[in-house]
């Protein structure tokens, strides 16, 4: 899965948690979940759990701590997928 494919999959996960139609339509690497998409922080946990299920990876607490932007989240997913593939 390349970066663009990860971002596309991530978009589908994020959508139900944001009502910011314009920001959702313009999601890119720099999009911030809280500042741009106004996602409730309790729903960030849902996004982390959805990411775990969708990509079949485990997000540890240190990784979760960084998951506030599309860029950081995409990087973490790519790292975990790579680690899984190497097993």
């Amino acid at each position: 899965m390349n970066k663009e494919e990860i971002i596309e999959a991530l978009k589908t996960i994020i959508e139900p948690y944001s009502e910011e139609v314009t920001a959702l339509a313009h999601i890119d690497e720099n999009t911030d979940f809280i500042n741009d998409l106004k996602i409730n922080s309790a729903n960030l946990v849902d996004i982390v759990l959805d990411v775990e299920e969708k990509f079949n990876i485990e997000i540890d607490n240190d990784s979760m701590a960084k998951m506030l932007t599309v860029k950081a989240t995409t990087e973490i997913i790519a790292q975990k997928l790579e680690a899984n593939a190497g097993q």
């Binding site: 409730n40 946990v45 849902d46 759990l49 775990e52 979760m64």
Partner: peptide
């Protein structure tokens, strides 16, 4: 709102927080 916005009974939810 919390009642409809968040399902904390979801598997692994509490353990993350």
């Amino acid at each position: 709102l919390a009642k409809i916005q968040s399902n904390w009974r979801r598997k692994n939810y509490l353990d993350k927080i």
